[in-house]
Design a protein around this nucleic acid. Structure first.
Length: 457
DNA sequence: TTAGGGTTAG
């Protein structure tokens, strides 16, 4: 429909641009203005709104648009359902997403390739790679031609479910059948190979990316930089950051958080502060992860007033604290020696539904030990359902410092028998402690037990 | 539509 040179198509472009930047109220205002001018919203108008509401607000809000759509005599089509499914999948409402697929079939709407792609993604997120693979096989057997994104979802989903070798095999097979990897494909593989410490293979894929003619993106660099930090190669990681800056990449929240977290971890707080200021100057909108990074920086600096102010800011902005937020607060308080504050927050965290936050409990154990309250740390340890090598290392190390070598030895063996690692330095401290305290027989036995555990695990 | 970021011990 055209009114004085304006058309619904043009109106839809305006609405889509507001939706893209989450300005849904403005998008709705444009719809109303359009109607006043005689421009009738069409299926594209409604689908654009459904997509934005299901991604950024809620499925209920998206359904209210569908209700308006139906009232206007327009039936939801495959794009409407795909938008709902995509929003549900992105927001981890996975069973809702599967229900929507059924609902689409019941409504007599035929799924298209995009519907199957979302369905595959959803199954992978649910940890059901076999189901996802069935969908993929159905696509191959049907008359639908897979989109490169279909293959990327498959490769990433396999990696995400622990099937990296299968993903690599699929990648090679597809290449033999003429598939030209996209930059995204390379980034997916590099990321998972880095995460699983298969660095030789990661380098190979990185080399293939270089030979492909694609220019590595900000995402590629962030992935490699993070990989360096993960391997404690901080200087190399920071060198990559300099290369990125030299190449003129504009850092986004992901890149900044990676750098700030590494600087904080290595105690380079001033540089971290400068980096964070640059982030804010660049207009990067802070999300939950960025807030947590900033919070950790304040806690490490001992700036608790600023930290609490930040927590208020997060709450006022409608951000819900997650397990990272709670852990950072508890660890920060412990490291500042405020054990009772940390315990109060631990209690609050549990009330908020985070009962088994292993990392937070480990921080509490370490905090109690360092405050000289090892028996209370042991009580907490006994009450925990799961423990990891951090739990044991903290306890064993601090028991040694307190001269309680026999208990340290007992705990350490329990840890090693469960196949969990204990740093060599901690093992040595237990052994030396037993020996120098006169428990020479026990020390010798421990040495053999460590060797046996090493062979068995 | 698909890819990158945040927490703990030694």
């Amino acid at each position: 429909m055209m009114v004085g040179g304006l058309s619904t198509k043009l109106l839809n472009i305006c609405i889509a641009s507001f939706c893209k930047v989450r300005l849904l109220e403005k998008a709705e205002a444009i719809v109303i203005d359009g109607i006043r001018l005689g421009l009738i919203p069409d299926v594209v108008t409604y689908n654009t709104l459904v997509s934005a509401y299901s991604r950024f607000v809620s499925l209920d809000a998206a359904y209210s648009v569908i209700h308006r759509m139906k009232e206007a005599g327009i039936s939801p089509n495959v794009i409407t359902y795909n938008s709902l499914m995509s929003g549900a999948t992105q927001n981890c409402l996975l069973s809702r997403s599967l229900d929507l697929f059924e609902e689409m079939l019941l409504a007599g709407v035929h799924p298209n390739l995009w519907s199957y792609n979302i369905l595959m993604h959803c199954f992978f997120k649910l940890g059901k790679p076999d189901e996802a693979n069935k969908v993929f096989q159905d696509i191959l057997l049907s008359n639908l031609t897979p989109h490169p994104a279909t293959l990327n979802i498959m490769i990433n989903g396999l990696c995400n479910n622990g099937y990296i070798d299968n993903a690599l095999m699929l990648y090679r097979n597809l290449q033999r059948h003429g598939f030209v990897p996209q930059l995204v494909t390379y980034n997916i593989l590099i990321n998972w190979l880095c995460k699983t410490r298969r660095l030789r293979q990661a380098r190979r894929i990185l080399k293939e990316l270089g030979e492909s003619g694609h220019e590595p993106s900000l995402i590629t660099y962030t992935t490699v930089m993070k990989c360096c930090f993960r391997s404690n190669k901080y200087d190399k990681g920071l060198q990559i950051m300099s290369v990125m800056m030299g190449k003129g990449y504009t850092f986004d929240g992901y890149a900044y958080c990676t750098v700030v977290a590494a600087l904080v971890k290595t105690g380079r707080i001033e540089e971290a502060n400068a980096c964070m200021e640059q982030t804010i100057r660049n207009g990067v909108e802070l999300d939950l992860v960025a807030y947590n990074t900033l919070l950790n920086m304040y806690c490490r600096e001992g700036k608790f007033e600023a930290a609490y102010k930040l927590l208020d800011e997060m709450e006022n902005g409608g951000l819900l604290f997650d397990k990272y937020t709670h852990t950072i607060i508890i660890d920060g308080l412990c490291k500042a020696g405020n054990i009772s504050g940390a315990q109060k927050h631990l209690h609050y965290m549990k009330m908020m539904g985070f009962h088994e936050n292993l990392v937070a409990l480990n921080c509490m154990i370490d905090g109690l030990c360092k405050a000289g309250q090892i028996d209370r740390a042991m009580e907490l340890y006994k009450s925990m359902e799961t423990k990891d090598s951090f739990t044991y290392t903290s306890l064993v190390h601090n028991l040694c410092k307190a001269g309680r070598f026999r208990l340290a030895s007992k705990l350490m063996m329990k840890c090693l028998r469960h196949g969990k690692k204990i740093p060599k330095a901690t093992q040595r401290a237990v052994f030396d402690g037993l020996y120098s305290s006169g428990f020479t027989d026990e020390a010798r036995k421990l040495w053999w037990k460590i060797r046996v555990a090493r062979i068995l695990h």
